[in-house]
Design a protein around this nucleic acid. Structure first.
Lengths: 160, 160
DNA sequence: ATAGATGCAAATATTTTGCCGCCAG
DNA sequence: CTGGCGGCAAAATATTTGCATCTAT
């Protein structure tokens, strides 16, 4: 039989288990990318977030730390991090609008599960998901580099 | 042990296996929703598409069938279909920009797998994915109603 | 007849670009 | 010093809304 699936469930807001502080900054440094005052601030905001942030929220928080951070710089930094595979982009099924949400890409893939009523987003890791990815690589002859899984439904409290 | 996984792979452009012609229209009729000339055209475009269409493409094709269809009507019809769970909304990992893509929601969930280089999108069904959903429902006590899984990687030909 | 749809124009939301002066390395 | 970066304004893209008019049922 299959071994017991490894699971980790985070309830409510995003729990930032994967983050060593300064990880994003270290990654960029290592790649020889220039670290400006503004970039450090944006990285810090993303790393310390307890939930998934959109660009506007990242900007607001960054400005609180350093009023000189410009909206365009936030977008450009997000783009930089995406290009380097250091953050993931989510839509959370457009529950909160048409924008995008970001989270620093931890060591393991996870699935996002949102309640369509209360909007709570939970994260879930599963051995089955890893097996599914392996199956896809095998069957389609593809090398997977990104995954984005968003699931919507109604949580226990919202069905009562 | 588990039975052999059922699989269906569609290569290249979207293969429209699930569609009985007029299914969307029949579904709306059954729900007592008014069927206007414009709506019929938009429904037909979505149903007969061989690939995932964005709003602009739906509009272009609808206008070819009936020049009187307005962009706003396309958006409103998409919204209607989404609210009734008759179509799914995808981003295809933003490979083609920040817009959304639509496909009529067939009887079974499937996974979208896009090549990050050539942009080809394939669809994949798997028993493992069904098991994963069951696991999530069991573990998180949630009733799943929507899923969106988008996977990116490099296909065989693009790695050569 | 009438609730609900459409068309149009304008608003909104989100993200991107061109250009120029500035600063991290 | 200098090439990449940030600020600013403006453009581009994508979608939504208010309102008057029309139409499917």
């Amino acid at each position: 039989m299959t071994a017991l699936p490894e699971r980790r469930v985070s309830t409510g807001e995003r729990i930032n288990v994967n983050e060593k502080p300064g990880r994003l900054q270290a990654e960029l440094e290592q790649r020889g990318i220039r670290l400006t005052r503004q970039r450090r601030v944006v990285l810090q905001v993303i790393e310390t977030a307890q939930r998934h942030l959109d660009a506007a929220t990242i900007l607001r928080r960054a400005k609180k730390l350093d009023p000189g951070v410009h909206r365009v710089t936030v977008y450009r930094t997000i783009d930089l991090l995406k290009r380097h595979g250091l953050i993931d982009e989510l839509d959370l099924l457009h529950l909160r609008g048409d924008g995008h949400y970001y989270e620093s890409h931890g060591p393991r893939d996870h699935i996002h599960i949102a309640c369509l009523r209360c909007g709570k987003v939970r994260e879930f890791e599963s051995r089955l998901f890893e097996e599914l990815k392996e199956e896809i690589e095998r069957e389609l002859g593809i090398k997977i580099t990104i995954t984005r899984t968003e699931i919507g439904g109604y949580c226990k409290s919202c069905r009562q």
